[in-house]
């Protein structure tokens, strides 16, 4: 179906769940007013990114009042948003929650937790164990959180699982100022979203945050990328924004006819080779 998507490029406050929920509610209201059917928020939108020892303090269990509030809001618009999720056995996950029609429909727990250079996620967070596509009012969706997107296998698995739209929630730090026109992180991400869309004949809806935490900027530039890999809408750099774009079913249909890569993709060949590699590694 055709629908309007809103990318809420917000600036969360570090460790302030109530303030960030209020921020999210305001964006939801704006997105509804603009006629959007789906609104995306960034990774860890309800908490901020460099949480460190704050992780347990800001974590939400899936029956928390904040989650119920998001369920309520999703009666008017589908919502996907990042938070810290605590499981009943007290593991903490960097999660993305998908709400639709008053219900929490899907939870993706970030699998690839960057722990190198400026990142330290595995010190504080537990790793997710699955990539699963799921059905929604907008067709079959797959969710990726930031670093997940950098592992080819992750969007591949989602696309093989039938996802035709990839939702990517991000808190990407701005770095790599050189003589180039763009920041290093901006140009890397722009290549990645376009290439992923093109390889998998999927739409990519990418929402990145803005603001600063301890001197680190987040660069925004949220994008709607068509299944052909072209950018149909892009958010401002470094500034808060609500990016609105019309997503057309016909575009997906035409691309899948023009370039039937996913139709031709051989699951048996891939699977056979991966199993072989796994066996050989075990030897």
């Amino acid at each position: 179906m055709d629908f309007t998507v809103a990318l809420a490029q917000i600036k969360p406050k570090l460790g302030c769940v109530a303030d960030n929920l209020a921020l999210a509610e305001a964006s939801v209201a704006d997105a509804v007013k603009a006629g959007a059917g789906l609104v995306l928020f960034p990774e860890l939108a309800l908490t901020g990114y460099f949480l460190k020892d704050l992780v347990p303090d800001v974590a939400l269990s899936l029956d928390a009042p904040e989650i119920n509030r998001l369920k309520e809001l999703s009666r008017h618009i589908a919502i996907v948003i990042g938070c810290v999720e605590v499981s009943p056995d007290y593991r903490f996950f960097n999660s993305a929650l998908y709400f639709e029609g008053g219900e929490l429909r899907h939870v993706h727990r970030k699998v690839y937790l960057p722990t190198y250079g400026m990142f330290d996620e595995q010190r504080y967070l537990a790793r997710g164990e699955r990539f699963r596509a799921f059905d929604s009012r907008f067709g079959r969706l797959g969710i990726l959180i930031c670093e997940d997107m950098w592992h080819l296998s992750a969007p591949y698995v989602l696309a093989m699982d039938g996802a035709t739209t990839l939702l990517c929630l991000s808190s990407s730090p701005g770095r790599g100022v050189s003589e180039d026109e763009s920041l290093g992180s901006t140009s890397a991400w722009q290549k990645l979203t376009a290439t992923t869309a093109m390889f998998l004949n999927c739409r990519v809806l990418y929402c990145n945050r803005v603001g600063y935490e301890d001197g680190v900027s987040f660069w925004g530039g949220s994008e709607v990328v068509s299944p052909a890999g072209s950018v149909t809408a892009r958010g401002k750099l470094f500034e808060e924004d609500l990016v609105l774009a019309r997503v057309e079913e016909g575009e997906l249909r035409r691309e899948r006819i023009f370039s039937p890569l996913m139709r031709d993709e051989s699951l048996p060949v891939t699977l056979k080779e991966l199993v072989r590699i796994d066996l050989e590694r075990g030897c």
Partner: peptide, 23 residues
Amino acid sequence: LGMNTALARTILVGFIREEVRKV
């Protein structure tokens, strides 16, 4: 060591503005 000065300026001006106002 060449630098896109417009981009650096945006980041550093934003840094001062936000980190001062945040407190």
